[in-house]
């Protein structure tokens, strides 16, 4: 039985996947941590992501203890937090982004505690009104759906679920129950930015998912190069690149403050990643 997404049928996110399908190309989802390395630089980069080729923007909400992320993304969280980044400022970033772009979907990704402290109701209200399209909350499995998933869906936000190599059929049904927007296939059992998946195993896994859902499928974890993006989007609807970009910020900052044109360098990398996808 296929489980189709029930609510949230016509949103900025579904429109984006419709466009990609109409153009017969895969999409590029870029992950960056909000406020990395500081608010202004980060804002500058994010505003230009769509013109550099990002189809969907995934924005990390910095957290002190990101237990599912590798060293690159944890370091990016720490850089952002060190310059005073907060969840409120992340929402402000989305707000400012929407002043010039009303079409590119933004997904916030992170951990539950900062949202829990912010207050679930007020967070959802602000996120929806400022133009957030969906949430990926790493430490909220379906078992905890009444915490944030259901209120988020009710507030009109997509709830994007991770599916992993450890997900069996029984669990997949549970995962699909409240999943909307797209499915995020975590291509390796592991943390972000470590091993790269083998193309064949990922393809098999994505094809298996298609038997169970009509949701678009994005593949992430371990995807770094334009070639990998091109490979993955032959069978998946989108590829997510995160650690590779975040690492680049880390390297540039580590090499003596931000002397280079940091936004320019990151955006150049995004252009390369998306080049093979453009029609």
């Amino acid at each position: 039985m296929k489980t189709a997404p029930q609510p949230l049928d016509h949103t900025r996110l579904t429109r984006r996947f419709d466009q990609l399908h109409a153009q017969e190309r895969g999409g590029l989802i870029t992950f960056l941590t909000a406020g990395d390395p500081d608010f202004d630089t980060s804002m500058d980069i994010i505003k230009q992501l769509p013109s550099a080729g990002a189809d969907i923007i995934e924005l990390g909400m910095p957290f002190s203890d990101p237990m599912a992320d590798g060293p690159a993304i944890q370091a990016s969280s720490q850089r952002a937090l060190a310059t005073g980044m907060t969840l409120r400022k992340t929402l402000l970033m989305v707000d400012q982004f929407r002043e010039t772009d009303t079409e590119t979907p933004i997904i916030l990704m992170g951990y539950f505690n900062p949202i829990y402290q912010f207050g679930i109701e007020s967070f959802l209200k602000e996120a929806a009104s400022k133009g957030v399209d969906g949430l990926i909350i790493v430490d909220l499995p379906p078992e905890e759906d009444d915490e944030l998933c259901q209120p988020a869906l009710a507030a009109g936000l997509h709830w994007i679920r991770l599916v992993t190599p450890t997900t069996d059929d029984q669990r997949l049904h549970l995962i699909l129950k409240n999943a909307t927007g797209f499915l995020y296939y975590v291509s390796i059992a592991g943390i972000t930015g470590t091993a790269s998946p083998t193309s064949e195993s990922t393809k098999t896994a994505v094809n298996r998912l298609r038997e169970h859902t009509t949701l678009p499928i994005a593949v992430g974890f371990g995807i770094r190069t334009p070639e990998q993006v091109q490979q993955v989007t032959k069978y998946a609807d989108a590829a997510v690149v995160g650690s590779a970009l975040v690492n680049e910020i880390g390297n540039k900052v580590a090499n003596g403050a931000i002397t280079v044109d940091l936004p320019g360098e990151i955006l150049q990398q995004v252009k390369l990643l998306s080049r093979e996808l453009q029609i």
């Binding site: 237990m67 599912a68 790493v138 499995p141 905890e144 991770l162 450890t166 069996d168 669990r171 975590v186």
Partner: peptide, 12 residues
């Protein structure tokens, strides 16, 4: 209490 872990860990 509860089970606030990443999906990869849930089966474990």
């Amino acid at each position: 209490g509860g089970r606030f872990v990443a999906e990869t860990l849930m089966p474990l």
